[in-house]
Design a protein around this nucleic acid. Structure first.
Lengths: 346, 346
DNA sequence: AAATGTGCGGAATACGTTTTCCCGATCACC
DNA sequence: GGTGATCGGGAAAACGTATTCCGCACATTT
């Protein structure tokens, strides 16, 4: 036993299995992944036995290169830890699993450059599908080359699906932000609210813009004053800060605050409360997304439910369908809760 | 142009690049990924130019098979949408990115069989590292074969790191659940609480057990009555339901509720409130994890902060270090908030 | 019984890289 | 000017699998 090498032992290959079973590797390959060709059942079972005995697992890279295609789908998101994206990821993962596909995830962190770099190196993995969720901005400079990159990938036979990114020549699944916000506005009008403040993010963030526009559209022709618009960050901290600004300015003339997403709304509620204004009693608050926390907050948050997991599922299905550039829009649902109690008519 | 095939155009290969640059593929390969060999700088730049012109991206599977190793790390979690795991995933992803590694994620969904199946097929991808976070149970039947599978993977040269799973012969990073719960118990005692209820999950869920045990240990020798133990699901719904049961039973003799994680605690708060008992005023509530929602809930939740992202980072670092089976424990921190106000001495 | 088909095993090739090995050219040194 | 070393280029082998192609044995038809 002198000189025995205890280093890494190479995993068994198809060759080993074939030898163990006493057949050629061609037969072994055919036996293990049912090809169009038949193999005598006795040989087949011997091969299977050998594979089990050696604990053989096919080398996916080798298969990929031999077959010229992989079984992976690449998902790029802005941030895994954000419930918005992780819900989408859960949907994608679930749908992929049903098709026996493996999903690999990359995190772009909100940087368009990083996003571009990721998509570029992703091509090297030759995934069957690339799904891009939540590119941060639109219309900006690097966006163009991202489109080029994806187009090139598609001409090489890949499938591309974008989530929450309209107007690009790929399959897209979008959220009905505009319609949801519009219906929310109407619901708030119906509840007796008349004077609003809107907490929104930068114009270039499309989701924020769409929700803001939709809300204004819902208010139109209702004869209510133009809402006060406050620009802030797309985060909880942004909502908090905006609420403070709102309070400083004086809040007597606003009856309800609409924040373009739930985390902002929740931050705003805390901000208002810290300033002595009780959400749901002194002022109405509404958000958008219906994240889990919306029901746990007090008062429970009025919001617009967005089927995020569903969006992931749909994206995956769209990718596997044969429509190249379908646009699939998902409906949103207004959910009224205690943060916007009906307001007695003045 | 008749008969022009507009179908998928194969992406350029190293061969194409070499031809374009007028050199051999060997030279092209050497020029593109600085090998130990030198190539004349003129040739090198011509190759680079050709690669850029053709928009060449190396086929990672081919590289993997030629080099015999990949640059991927495989992460298996129970559920991406759960903030607990997505935070860990964020940490892993970040650390991996720093090392130019790609992370692929698989979701086990809390099923040990599925987990085993995943790890098995994962071997086929020959990742450099496998990180398993939150296997659900321990000591059970399939656990054994999972260990076998991972051991085999390691003898083949792979690195294994387990998160939140002690006592297994691999690198592990664990959370100091016991200590955190113990200190939480002491803090609550110091705040004047004496009579507790503990909302916990099944015994086989290790995290739940450790936190429960730690809490009891913190209470020991304090001369307080044995806490009331209520078993329920490890989820928000479980917490809600347990709270209802607690209220039905009669809640007069409990001063504070400790739920073994935050989502349970938050569910319990809602459950209590729905029954007319106001958390933070009528009864104290504490959780564990310090998820983001803990501060947005009203009253803000007393809890034990767990460095989840950090756990992911540490796991990745541990995997890349050369200690085979180090055990890295991460500290936890008690955070007192409004859900457990100091209680006036009776 | 010859001709034709059919079922199945195996050798060989392909996939896109990296790497080893060989070979010619240039250089340094005596 | 010969000898050896160094440098860099290219041919070819290797990685592990899928698949094409060839050939053999056997069954079916005429």
């Amino acid at each position: 036993m002198i000189g025995m090498d205890d280093g890494p032992k190479a995993p068994p290959t198809l060759h080993d299995v074939a030898r163990e079973a006493g057949v050629s590797i061609a037969t072994a390959s055919r036996a293990l992944n049912g090809s169009s060709r038949n193999v005598r059942s006795e040989n087949a079972s011997r091969v299977r036995a050998a594979a089990a005995k050696l604990d053989y697992e096919p080398h996916l890279s080798a298969q990929a290169i031999a077959k010229g295609s992989t079984r992976t789908v690449a998902l790029v998101v802005r941030d895994v830890a954000d419930p918005y994206f992780s819900s989408i990821a859960a949907g994608v993962t679930q749908a992929a699993q049903e098709c026996r596909l493996i999903v690999t995830m990359a995190v772009a962190g909100g940087s368009p450059e990083r996003e571009l770099e990721i998509v570029r190196t992703l091509r090297g993995r030759r995934p069957r599908v690339i799904i891009v969720a939540g590119s941060r901005v639109d219309g900006s400079g690097t966006r163009g080359t991202l489109v080029e990159e994806l187009t090139e990938y598609r001409t090489a036979g890949g499938r591309v699906v974008l989530i929450s990114q309209r107007d690009l020549p790929f399959g897209t699944v979008t959220i009905d932000n505009r319609g949801g916000a519009e219906r929310l506005a109407r619901a708030l009008l119906a509840a007796g609210y008349r004077r609003f403040a809107v907490l929104h993010a930068q114009e270039r963030i499309r989701t924020s813009r769409e929700r803001h526009d939709g809300f204004l559209a819902g208010l139109r022709h209702a004869g209510v004053p133009e809402p006060l618009a406050i620009e802030t960050g797309f985060t909880r901290a942004g909502g908090y800060e905006a609420a403070r600004r709102l309070v400083e300015r004086g809040v007597a003339d606003v009856e309800a605050v609409f924040a373009v997403n739930d985390v902002m709304a929740i931050g705003a509620m805390t901000g208002l409360r810290d300033a002595g204004i009780v959400p749901g009693r002194d002022i109405g608050v509404a958000g958008f997304d219906d994240i889990d926390a919306a029901v746990d907050v007090v008062p429970a948050l009025t919001t617009v439910a967005v089927p995020l997991r569903e969006a992931g599922l749909t994206a995956m299905r769209l990718a596997l369908s044969d429509e190249e550039t379908a646009d699939h829009s998902l409906p949103t649902n207004v959910v009224l809760r205690e943060s916007t109690p009906p307001r007695p008519p003045t």
